[in-house]
């Protein structure tokens, strides 16, 4: 949207509001009887989104549901990782949500890039692995060991050819 801030109804009087320096109370300029919370625009430096496919122009098909396109539009740079690089991606492709190359900085071919979460139609979420990830996140040592075993210690080919659970749909 490119707006500097946005009014939001709610949150006034909460400790969430009290603890957020990026939210303030401001009068509604069109209605002197109303005050709302206004929230500062969030503009990430980089967004990384995973999708189904992309072309070399940067047009891509993202997951069908979710606010991925809005995240890309808010971010200064957007990297789209995809299962597959194809010759041409168009908005007529209904396998997911289309994102135009004007919102994309770079495309990366990353098969199995959503693992251990799912890409509907391709592979399912791996609950056992996610539990292992959560367990590993309790300490720096445990998480370092996790990274060594599942990320840093693997070759590119091993990561791309990971075995995932077949998709339910």
């Amino acid at each position: 949207m490119g707006v500097p801030y946005i009014p939001v109804r709610g949150l006034a009087g909460t400790d969430v509001f009290e603890r957020r320096p990026d939210m303030m109370l401001a009068p509604n300029p069109f209605d002197p009887n109303e005050v709302t919370v206004v929230a500062l625009a969030q503009n990430p430096d980089v967004a990384i989104l995973h999708g189904l496919k992309a072309d070399r122009e940067g047009n891509a098909i993202l997951r069908r549901f979710g606010e991925d396109v809005m995240v890309a539009q808010a971010s200064r740079r957007t990297i789209v990782t995809v299962e597959e690089i194809v010759d041409k991606v168009t908005p007529e492709d209904t396998s997911g949500q289309f994102i135009s190359s004007i919102n994309v900085t770079a495309v990366v071919h990353a098969p199995m890039g959503a693992y251990p979460t799912a890409v509907p139609g391709l592979y399912n979420r791996d609950d056992a692995h996610i539990r292992r990830y959560v367990d590993a996140s309790v300490s720096d040592e445990a998480f370092r060991a996790y990274l060594d075993e599942y990320v840093l210690g693997l070759t590119e080919d091993q990561i791309r050819n990971r075995q995932a659970l077949p998709s339910a749909k």
Partner: peptide, 15 residues
């Protein structure tokens, strides 16, 4: 311990 939602707010807050 923490106010996630307030029961009563300033009358200029529309809710």
């Amino acid at each position: 311990d923490f106010v996630s939602g307030a029961g009563v707010t300033d009358e200029r807050i529309q809710r």
